[in-house]
């Protein structure tokens, strides 16, 4: 087997990326456009619960909310729920009859510090439980040590283990250090067959930011120009406000175009975002500022 060599990729201009990303926060999204953006954000959301204290009951409640985020008004369901592998079965049973997919974090989430055969077996078992999508983490330690071929092989092996399930590769950008490293990691994941690349686990304080996601968008765009393959992107972690959500949508539209404005190619990983989006929708409808006291947690 031939060893993977990282292709030549452009370096990232930090100042340019940050100022470009900041520009996406200045778009004025109001009224009809706002409503459309909020509803699209719901359809693209991976409603997530990844806590040690997750119970079957909590996952069941979350699945109900995923299918019908709001009672009393028409509201789209979210794209997927994201849970730990042991809760995939519960989620799958709770979501029978709906289009909501089940995503699961596998491969010794969130650190990825376990033996490869164990990680691959985790993926296989999770898929067998019924997961439609697998969110894997890369070995950041190996990546930072420059063992790119190892990362490539691990992602490729994970993809194989996934079988029919979609593979999302979590880069954990908060631990990669620089935009150049993010761009490299994106390239390796895409080369190795990832269906999606995802920013963060949500377990590291520096999670998804607009600039880091922009770097990944550009990697995806260049990959598409070179290979014709469309890779999806999922920013996750730290997206709590509806305003942030539509800033990401603006960035998708202006960087990748309308093709990517679909739940098949763009997802938002979040837990508390949904309630804020619902509050904004309700505000648009009633004209009154809303209170979180009137929206269910979990």
């Amino acid at each position: 087997m031939q060893t993977y060599r990282l292709p030549k990729i452009p370096t990232v201009d930090q100042v340019q990326v940050e100022s470009r990303a900041a520009a996406f926060t200045t778009r004025s999204i109001k009224k009809g456009a706002k409503k459309a953006a909020l509803e699209l954000a719901i359809r693209m959301m991976d409603l997530t619960t990844l806590e040690g204290m997750d119970t079957e009951g909590k996952v069941q409640m979350m699945c109900k909310k995923a299918m019908q985020p709001m009672i009393g008004r028409p509201c789209p369901s979210v794209a997927a729920v994201c849970v730990y592998p042991t809760l995939v079965g519960v989620a799958k049973r709770s979501l029978v009859g709906s289009d909501v997919k089940v995503a699961a974090v596998a491969t010794a989430f969130p650190s990825g510090q376990s033996f490869l055969p164990i990680r691959l077996e985790e993926i296989r078992q999770t898929v067998a439980e019924g997961a439609d999508e697998i969110d894997m983490v890369i070995s950041r330690g190996a990546f930072l040590a420059g063992e790119y071929a190892r990362i490539y092989d691990e992602v490729a092996a994970s993809k194989e283990a996934c079988g029919p399930a979609h593979l999302k590769v979590i880069l954990e950008t908060g631990e990669l250090g620089t935009y150049d490293q993010v761009r490299k990691a994106s390239q390796i994941a895409m080369d190795a067959g990832a269906d999606f690349i995802k920013t963060s686990t949500g377990k590291v304080s520096e999670a998804a930011t607009l600039p880091v996601t922009l770097v990944m968008f550009e990697a995806v765009r260049d990959f598409f120009f070179q290979t014709g393959k469309r890779i999806g992107i999922k920013p996750a972690g730290g997206i709590r406000k509806a305003k942030q959500a539509w800033q990401y949508l603006v960035m998708v539209k202006e960087t990748l175009g309308d093709d990517w404005l679909t739940p098949d190619l763009f997802r938002l990983g979040a837990s508390s975002l949904l309630n804020d989006v619902l509050m904004q929708l309700q505000r648009l409808e009633t004209g009154n500022y809303q209170s979180s006291l009137y929206f269910s947690e979990d």
Partner: peptide, 8 residues
């Protein structure tokens, strides 16, 4: 009106 209608 915004204060009086504010749900919070």
């Amino acid at each position: 009106p915004h204060a009086a209608g504010h749900m919070d």
